[in-house]
Design a protein around this nucleic acid. Structure first.
Lengths: 191, 191
DNA sequence: ATTATCTATAGATCTATAGATAATGC
DNA sequence: ATTATCTATAGATCTATAGATAATGC
């Protein structure tokens, strides 16, 4: 049941894509390799021809999630260049984002898991963070901020956004969750 | 090998205490019941005489963690009543806290896990959050803030603190972690 | 001939339970 | 007699690997 080299590459990419969603939805420890391969339409045993280990897939799936969400951030910033922090906050701090971790921010979904993971996963979180912070910094500098102020505001804003989403997901009360998101949006300055 | 009712109650409390640290250190899914019971000096099988399920222990261990850290917050606020947000930020956003999740804030350590847990765990996270927010609100109102402003600032500050700690733990680069913590401290207002 | 994927399984977990044991508390 | 804890195990996972299979790519 061998497939073409092209198809094999597509299969590998599909595994990463499926894993990226499943990991965000259920956590690294909440999904098994058999689950992922089945969802990608392949068999469990085929996994180790594509990846060295589950941890390698965790890293690659995180990278893929960051690449996707980076584009979303970039689009929002391009559409509203004069208020970059509000631009990001307004799509980030939403009920839809809270209710759909599997397609949302990998920091909010997996940073706790990454904190307990090995250096390969953390390396992806590190570059994922730096690349988002770089987007915000650039936009803030264009809006007239100093480089130092831009970096501080960018880092702190990401912390506020991620913290608010994580907390909003950890409570039962939906309206409390929305209050958390709204309070975070209220303190994000207009850049 | 039966023990006195008093000792049995102490054993149960010890299991909760040990679990509260181990869960914060390794996540709910990263620790087994056998691990916890062994660390508490008991046998695996004894667990189900003390608790209905692992999830019940997760909820009780979370509650215990919140009770402990609530006291820390209260102490910091009592010591510095005029700058409540800075008071909390200055012990929360530290290298020591980043490097010791097992004795630190359960939001930062476990909110991602809680988001995927059942309603009993989420209920503890909800009341754990409300009780910390209540402390901050009260202090901010004493410092002259309106009730609405106090609540918004309290919720947003907790989001920023938790987000910064979670992100600082998810990267390899220690100095980047410290930069994240410092940027969060810089944007927390003086109350 | 090479190799992507398959079936099947090893070996190590995990939660939860059944039944035995022995000390407490009536 | 009751009950807190113990030993032992069922049954369901999980990661990872071994070896077979069959289509690609030389």
């Amino acid at each position: 049941m061998r497939v073409s080299r092209e198809q094999a590459e597509k299969n590998r990419a599909a595994v990463i894509d499926v894993a990226s969603r499943m990991f965000r939805g259920r956590g690294f420890d909440g999904v098994g390799i058999a689950d992922i391969m089945k969802a990608a339409g392949l068999t469990h045993g085929g996994f180790y021809g594509q990846f060295e280990s589950k941890e390698q897939l965790e890293a690659e799936a995180s990278r893929a999630a960051f690449a996707r969400t980076w584009k979303r951030w970039q689009g929002a910033l391009a559409a509203e260049p004069d208020a970059p922090l509000q631009a990001v906050a307004s799509f980030y701090l939403t009920k839809a984002h809270r209710d759909h971790p599997e397609t949302g921010c990998a920091f909010a979904a997996l940073a706790g898991d990454a904190a307990r993971s090995g250096p390969d996963v953390k390396a992806e979180f590190e570059s994922g963070l730096e690349s988002k912070v770089a987007l915000l910094e650039e936009a803030l500098i264009s809006s007239g901020a100093s480089p130092e102020e831009a970096r501080t505001r960018a880092l702190a804003t990401v912390s506020t956004l991620v913290g608010a989403l994580v907390l909003a997901r950890a409570v039962n009360d939906k309206s409390l969750g929305e209050e958390i998101l709204a309070s975070a949006a209220a303190v994000v300055p207009d850049g």
